[in-house]
C-alpha cells in the first residue's frame, strides 16, 4: 500500500525533488494522525503516547526499510516532527474555538486520557513564536520543532539537519531562552 509510495517519495525528495516532499507530507500527516488518535482512544492500552514512539511507528509502517539509508530516516523524522506540530496546534486551535462556543468538529484527539502532562504555556503561542523565530533564524526554529514536536535527541536532530550536534545544542539552548522570554514565562516561574 502506501509503504512503497512513501519510500519512493522520500528517496526522491532526498535526491533533490522538492515536489516529492509536497506529496509525501499529507501521507505522513494522515498516518501520524491515525496513530495518535488510536493511542488516545485507548484502542491499544499497552502503549503510552510519545512523540518518539509515534514517529518510529509511523516510520516502520510507511517506509520500506530495505530501500532507504540512515539519512533518509532522519529526514523522515524531520517531516514527521513538522506534522506533529501541525496536528497538535490544529487541535489546540479547535479546542479553543469550541470553548468560545464554535461548532467545529470534535477531533478524536480531544480524548485527553493519554495526553502529556499539562504545560504552563499555550501551544498556539509557541507556534506563533516559532514562526517569528523562523524569520530570524530558520535553522533554530527547525531544531525546536524536531526536538520538541518530533521528540528527537540532539544527535538525531543533527542527523536530520545535517549539522553538528554541538550546533544543535547551541541553537537549542539559545532558542529555548528566546522562546521562554517571548512567551512571557519569565518571572512567573516558581523557583
Amino acid at each position: 500500500m502506501a509503504g512503497a509510495d512513501v519510500t519512493t517519495l522520500l528517496i526522491d525528495w532526498s535526491q533533490g525533488d522538492r515536489s516529492a516532499l509536497d506529496r509525501l507530507m499529507p501521507l505522513v500527516y494522515d498516518e501520524l494522525h491515525h496513530l495518535a488518535s488510536r493511542y488516545m482512544s485507548h484502542e491499544d492500552p499497552g502503549h503510552t503516547l510519545q512523540s518518539t514512539a509515534l514517529v518510529h511507528e509511523a516510520y516502520l509502517k510507511l517506509i520500506d526499510q530495505q530501500r532507504v539509508q540512515w539519512r533518509n530516516r532522519a529526514q523522515f523524522f524531520g517531516v514527521a516532527a513538522q506534522m506533529i506540530r501541525r496536528i497538535l496546534v490544529d487541535h489546540a486551535r479547535t479546542a479553543k474555538a469550541q470553548k468560545r462556543g464554535g461548532d467545529a468538529r470534535k477531533l478524536s484527539l480531544d480524548e485527553t486520557a493519554g495526553l502529556p502532562a499539562p504545560r504552563d504555556f499555550d501551544l498556539i503561542a509557541l507556534d506563533d513564536a516559532l514562526a517569528t523565530l523562523a524569520k530570524l533564524d530558520p535553522q533554530q526554529s527547525r531544531v525546536i520543532e524536531l526536538r520538541f514536536f518530533g521528540g528527537l535527541t540532539i544527535e538525531e536532530t543533527a542527523e536530520a539537519l545535517n549539522i553538528s550536534p554541538a550546533t544543535v545544542k547551541r541553537d537549542w539552548v539559545t532558542a529555548k531562552a528566546w522562546l521562554f522570554r517571548e512567551l512571557n514565562l519569565a518571572d512567573s516561574a516558581a523557583p
Binding site: A36, T48, L49, Q50, S51, T52, L54, I84, R85, L88, G114, P116, A117, F121, L123, I144, R147, F148, F149, G150, G151, V173, T174, K176, A177, W178, L179, F180, R181, L185, A186, D187, A189
Partner: peptide
C-alpha cells in the same frame, strides 16, 4: 535578559510535546 530567561527556563520544552522522553 536572555540569561535570566535561560536560568529560569528549567524544564521548559525539555519534555517532547507528546509525552515523556524514553
Amino acid at each position: 535578559a536572555l540569561i535570566e530567561a535561560n536560568d529560569q527556563a528549567g524544564e521548559f520544552l525539555e519534555t517532547p510535546a507528546l509525552g515523556a522522553k524514553p
